[in-house]
């Protein structure tokens, strides 16, 4: 496990707040994610995990506070975010594949249009990714011909094709049938081994315990507690953390 204190800070949040209308979802988030670190966000629904991830790649603009990527303020209002978004990839719970394109075209679209590369240039890398994640036979299939697990894996490949520096995962296994979850978690393990900086919102406690460098427990728009997985799972300090874990861990087999 990389030692967080010696790695440079890849992504940092300071005092980030976000409201949707009258409802304040993020109430001042401070976070630092080191390069190559895998951080898991856990917490009840409505705690703001999803919103936090979407603020990290500025899919949602933040109301107050700062987001820094490699030390540069990317949350400055009015910045051209296209360049920044290429550096941060995100995978969603509902896969969000483009249904009118094949898996391969889904993956190739952004590199071809946003990076202005030709089909021949980007094909080899894409094929390699498909092969690496066991989907070589499914490259030309359409999303509705793939299982949930396969679609999610294609979604990961699609995000990886842009060669991001950070990957965000918004509960990517929550919509999957249980037997399909493992194949997706496998990919996450591989990415982690590659040294990708990753932030995951997840309900997969076992996975978080085993794979994360750091776990953050969020509730009601704030980070209640954070630390090494063992610390959080075996020895939670705060009442809210304890209450949440009791409910969650009892259910998971």
């Amino acid at each position: 496990m990389p030692e967080a204190e010696f790695s440079p800070v890849k992504l940092a949040l300071k005092g980030v707040t976000k409201s949707f209308g009258p409802h304040q979802v993020l109430k001042g988030i401070d976070m630092e994610i080191a390069a190559g670190e895998m951080v898991c966000l856990i917490g009840p629904s409505g705690s703001g995990k999803s919103t936090l991830l979407r603020c990290m790649n500025l899919l949602e603009p933040i109301d107050d506070g700062y987001v820094y990527l490699d030390g540069a303020d990317i949350s400055e209002p009015g910045l051209d975010l296209r360049l920044i978004r290429r550096r941060i990839g995100i995978v969603f719970q509902a896969f969000n594949l483009f249904p009118h394109m094949s898996a391969m075209d889904n993956v190739l679209l952004a590199p071809r249009r946003a990076l202005r590369k030709s089909r021949e240039e980007v094909m080899p890398d894409a094929e390699a990714l498909f092969a690496r994640f066991g989907l070589a036979d499914h490259m030309n299939k359409f999303p509705d011909q793939l299982s949930g697990g396969q679609q999610q894996r294609v979604a990961v490949i699609r995000a990886l094709a842009m060669r991001p520096e950070v990957m965000l995962f918004d509960e990517i296994t929550s919509a999957l049938d249980p037997e399909l979850v493992e194949e997706v978690l496998d990919i996450l393990r591989q990415l982690r081994a590659d040294g990708m900086t990753m932030v995951l919102a997840t309900h997969e406690m076992q996975f978080a315990r085993e794979a994360a460098d750091r776990v953050c427990f969020m509730d009601d728009g704030v980070i209640v507690e954070e630390g090494a997985p063992e610390a959080i799972f075996a020895n939670p300090q705060r009442e809210r953390t304890k209450a949440f874990l009791k409910g969650v861990l009892r259910r998971q087999v």
Binding site: R54, N57, L59, R82, L83, R85, R86, I88, G89, I90, F92, A94, N96, L97, F98, L109, A110, R113, A114, L115, R158, A159, M162
Partner: peptide, 13 residues
Amino acid sequence: QSQRAAAISLGLS
């Protein structure tokens, strides 16, 4: 909206 969200997140204009 999620289609647009996914496309924008990939860096598409």
